[in-house]
């Protein structure tokens, strides 16, 4: 198979699995999972790390020459807070990739599309590579593409629920229409959910809770990595349509070409 790199912003990625670093029992558990997963993009919450401190327990274990650190603006309640958090990352850590999360709603951490779009416009203008976390809203995805986002990251189901692709139909529309990579984020609880997203044509997936709270996070990371790869190959191989009616394997109009 020829090279199948994913381009986000100006970076080529071999792995289509992005890993979140929250909820692990320790930095060691996280690093073991990260290395086993083969992921190249690692997200971390700006509110959790001391971005300007090389001794920070999370930052100090991740080698920036091997991994792309993707800080997120988790905790931001509006566009202004998200923009300010992103600028802290840029100023203190020299990082200009940002996973934009505006999640004012405390219970399900659902993203606020209106504020996300506002923040995205500003951050793109300020020179950031912006990867926004959004509801599976096809029109919002197009609007974010228009303002210059590097990807869209629609949710499969709410963060931490492990419910899989509850937004499947809308995700399919986003994937069909998008001219930027679609990274399915949030709610992927099993490797089969990740494989399903990749089979549908998602460009990548982001996984955190399912790996970090597994009994053996490293092994679960391996399982997700294989599922993502399998789903991707299946997609590229031209998967068959799912149909309710039986279909003859010799097409009915084959005789016309004889």
């Amino acid at each position: 198979m020829k090279s199948d790199e994913l381009f986000v912003g100006n970076r080529g990625l071999k792995s289509r699995l992005f890993l979140g670093t929250g909820k692990f029992a320790s930095s060691k558990h996280m690093m073991d999972a990260l290395e086993a997963s083969g992921a190249e993009v690692v997200t971390m919450a700006l509110r959790r790390v001391n971005i300007d401190d090389p001794q920070d327990s999370l930052l100090s274990v991740i080698d920036p020459s091997r991994y792309i650190i993707l800080p997120n603006t988790a905790g931001a309640r509006d566009a202004d807070e998200a923009v300010r958090l992103a600028h802290i990352a840029k100023r203190s850590g020299g990082i200009d990739w940002i996973k934009l999360e505006v999640t004012p709603e405390i219970n399900h951490l659902l993203p606020d599309g209106v504020e996300t779009l506002k923040a995205a416009e500003k951050l793109v203008r300020d020179g950031f590579t912006v990867l926004p976390y959004i509801q599976a809203d096809p029109l919002l995805a197009k609007r974010l593409e228009e303002v210059g986002c590097a990807t869209v990251m629609p949710l499969g189901s709410p963060i931490g629920t492990n419910k899989g692709l509850k937004t499947r139909d809308m995700l399919a529309y986003i994937i069909q229409q998008s001219q930027i990579p679609v990274v399915v984020d949030a709610g992927l609880g099993l490797p089969s959910h990740a494989a399903e997203a990749m089979e549908m044509g998602a460009d990548a997936v982001l996984v955190n809770t399912a790996i970090s709270i597994a009994r053996y996070p490293k092994n679960m990371a391996i399982a997700f990595s294989k599922a993502v790869e399998a789903g991707r190959i299946a997609y590229l191989s031209g998967r068959g349509d799912v149909s309710d009616t039986a279909r003859a394997s010799s097409p009915l109009t084959g005789f016309l070409r004889k």
């Binding site: 692990f24 320790s26 509110r47 959790r48 790390v49 300010r84 958090l85 802290i88």
Partner: peptide, 17 residues
């Protein structure tokens, strides 16, 4: 906490914010 498999979190917001 660590023996029980829990990561102690000292920082969960940013003073600058």
């Amino acid at each position: 906490l660590q023996n029980k498999g829990y990561d102690p979190v000292w920082k969960d917001w940013d003073g600058e914010m």
